[in-house]
Amino acid sequence: MKNTLMLACTLVLATLSGTAFAQDAAGGFIRGEIGRSDIDLEVDGFGSASEDDTSATFGGGYWFNEYVAIEGHIGSLYNTEVEDDVELDLITLGVGVALKKSFGGAHTGFFIGGRAGVARITAQVREDDFDVIDDESDVKPYFGASAGYDFSQRFGLSLNWDRRQADFDGVDVDIDTIAIGGEFRF
């Protein structure tokens, strides 16, 4: 009887410990990324061009466990002054799934990851006082990869590459972004 009771207690404690550990890896997060976007344009009948600019995105989501999360993001991929007081912006708004493999346990140590989803890219022409003159949007899949280091279960830094595309009335846009990101988990 004592052996059966001890075995039952051991199994319950082992189950509770595993559940508690799994819940430590789950939870919400916020992420900020700053980097460089390389924009390749192909305009029907006019040829192609390439340009780059600073990018900044902000996102967040929820880690279901140490491997899988759902995430959303918003940010600026490109901004340039077209003429006096008129600017062109490329803005991204997306939702997707993130995958991660940590080599030091749940959200600790070195990791590699990937993400994919759907992003709405908006090309917006606006005046300096934020009055939108014209805008056009396109929704397409995006994907990316990352590598980094989690300093604790709450904070990590990463190097990220993302690929986004859009088609605007005769203009094909390919956007490759390399960014450094910081993620805070709660």
Rank of each mutant, 00 (worst) to 15 (best):
M1W: 07
K2D: 15
N3C: 06
N3L: 12
L5Y: 11
L5V: 11
L5I: 13
M6E: 14
L13A: 15
L13T: 14
L13M: 14
L13D: 09
T15P: 01
L16E: 07
G18I: 07
F21Y: 10
A22L: 05
D24Q: 12
A25H: 01
G28H: 09
G28A: 12
I30Y: 12
G32Y: 01
E33H: 09
I34Y: 10
I34C: 04
I34L: 15
R36L: 14
R36E: 15
R36Q: 15
L41Q: 13
D44T: 15
F46G: 07
F46M: 15
S48M: 09
S48P: 05
S50V: 08
S50C: 08
T54Q: 06
T57E: 06
F58D: 01
G60F: 04
Y62R: 09
Y62A: 07
N65P: 01
V68A: 03
A69S: 13
A69M: 08
I70P: 03
I70H: 05
E71V: 03
E71C: 07
E71T: 06
G72N: 10
G72Y: 08
H73D: 10
H73W: 11
S76M: 12
S76Q: 15
S76K: 12
L77Y: 11
Y78Q: 11
T80N: 12
T80P: 01
V82H: 03
V82N: 03
D85E: 11
V86P: 00
L88R: 04
I91V: 11
T92K: 07
T92L: 01
L93P: 00
L93W: 04
L93C: 06
G94D: 08
V95E: 03
G96R: 02
A98C: 01
K101D: 02
K101Q: 14
S102T: 03
F103D: 04
F103L: 13
G104E: 08
G104M: 11
G104W: 06
A106G: 15
H107D: 00
T108M: 13
F110G: 02
F110W: 15
F110N: 06
F110T: 12
F111Y: 14
G114Y: 00
R115D: 05
G117M: 03
G117E: 04
A119Y: 00
A119H: 01
R120D: 11
R120E: 14
T122M: 08
V125M: 07
D128C: 02
F130A: 14
D131N: 08
D131A: 07
D131R: 02
I133N: 05
D134H: 11
D134T: 08
D135K: 08
E136G: 04
S137V: 11
V139R: 10
V139Q: 10
P141H: 09
A145H: 00
S146I: 00
S146M: 05
S146E: 04
A147I: 07
G148T: 02
G148Y: 00
G148E: 00
D150W: 09
D150L: 03
S152E: 05
Q153Y: 07
Q153V: 11
F155I: 13
F155S: 05
G156N: 04
S158E: 05
S158I: 05
W161P: 00
W161H: 10
R163N: 15
R163H: 15
R164I: 06
F168A: 10
D169F: 06
G170L: 04
V171A: 10
D172M: 09
D174S: 14
D174R: 11
I175V: 14
D176V: 02
D176H: 08
D176F: 01
D176Y: 02
T177Y: 06
A179K: 03
A179C: 07
I180Y: 03
E183T: 14
R185V: 01
